[in-house]
Every structure is written in C-alpha cells, then in structure tokens.
Design a protein around this nucleic acid. Structure first.
Length: 178
DNA sequence: TAGCTGATTGACT
DNA sequence: GTCAATCAGCTAA
C-alpha cells in the first residue's frame, strides 16, 4: 500500500506493478548514468527517489536494500483505495459514472499518473517513506504464482532484463506484459 | 552556455 | 498507428 497525505487529503492505493533498477551494472538505472542521484541509491532503503521524465511527469521510486547496496523500485501502477475523488480532481479527469474499472485505472495506472493522483512531486525526493505525508505500508501478501515477471517498460538501456513485477490479471497494471 | 536525452502521457489519424 | 509537449540533469566546449 502507498499512502499520501500530501496537500492535506488522504489518498492511497495498492501497489500492483513495480520495476526494479539495480546499480551501475544495470544500464537503465539512474545509479548508472545520473551521478547527482547516485548517493540516494547507495543510502539506506525506505527513501523516496523522485525524478522527472520527459519534462512532464514525475516518477516515484523506493530505494531498496541496505546502505551501500544500490537499487530501487519504481512504482508503476496502483489500484485506487482511498481519496478517489481527490485523485480524479488532481488528474483533471472527473469520474463520469462513478466507479467503472477503466475510469479508475486511468487515475493511477502509470508512473506519471499515480504521482499526479497522490500529489507526489520532485519535492518528495529524499523523503523517508516510513513517515507521513508519504508512506509505504505492508499490504496483503501475494502468492508467488500471482506475480508476473516480465521485461521493463519504456526503457532504451538494458531492455532485456526481466525486472518488472505485476499482479497477474489485475486491471490496474499499466501495460500488458511481454 | 548550448545542445541533447528520456523509467511518459494524451491527443489525434 | 503517429506525434508533440516540456525540463532536470547530463555532456561538450
């Protein structure tokens, strides 16, 4: 579960899709080609790393692993749980007929979308994800068979690595698996 | 200082 | 299916 109180309103969703980024050996990882953010990757886990892609969209990562071991997890998609009206307002995409699955998925199924819905910006870079206003909490455990492993989406370096993890048959994942 | 790239999305044909 | 929007951080000079 990812919970946000940024802006004073509670919004939350279940994490249904992630991608892993490793250290310098992973060409797609910012640890490999963005020196200014490298210190975060080598720091202790549980810290937010936020970057802007294509000048438009902010993407949220959770730094993983102990201090000295580089790596992070990109949050790619959520299943909306709380504050859905606020998500829709921030996304400027009012829900037409209440709760249709595609309309809900359009709020948070994509790294740029979910940061908009939860009001996460570059200002959240370096934030401790164990504390408000932005927290990650343990949710229901998944059986290994329910998690689909596939190649990562939208990257140009090291595209062959299978480091994308999504919930099988969940309508809120951002794109079909390969 | 100038120029380039990109872990994206939404609008359009 | 194509394509443009838009900027932080990098590199070259």
């Amino acid at each position: 579960m990812l919970l946000s109180r940024i802006g004073g309103r509670l919004t939350a969703g279940r994490i249904v899709e992630t991608e892993a980024y490793l250290g310098p050996e992973d060409g797609a990882s910012h640890a490999a080609f963005r020196p200014s953010s490298r210190w975060l990757f080598y720091g202790p886990g549980g810290i937010a790393y936020v970057f802007r892609a294509y000048g438009l969209y902010d993407c949220l990562n959770a730094v993983a692993g102990p201090r000295g071991t580089p790596g992070c997890v990109l949050i790619r998609a959520l299943e909306p749980v709380a504050g859905i009206a606020d998500m829709a307002r921030r996304r400027r995409r009012p829900l037409p007929d209440g709760t249709s699955i595609p309309a809900l998925a359009a709020l948070t199924s994509g790294p740029g979308r979910l940061t908009q819905a939860l009001n996460v910006t570059l200002a959240g870079n370096g934030h401790d994800l164990r504390r408000w206003p932005l927290r990650i909490q343990a949710g229901s455990r998944q059986r290994p068979g329910d998690v689909r492993v596939s190649t990562r989406v939208g990257i140009t370096r090291s595209p062959h690595l299978r480091l994308r993890f999504s919930l099988r048959a969940n309508p809120f994942v951002s794109r079909p698996s390969t």
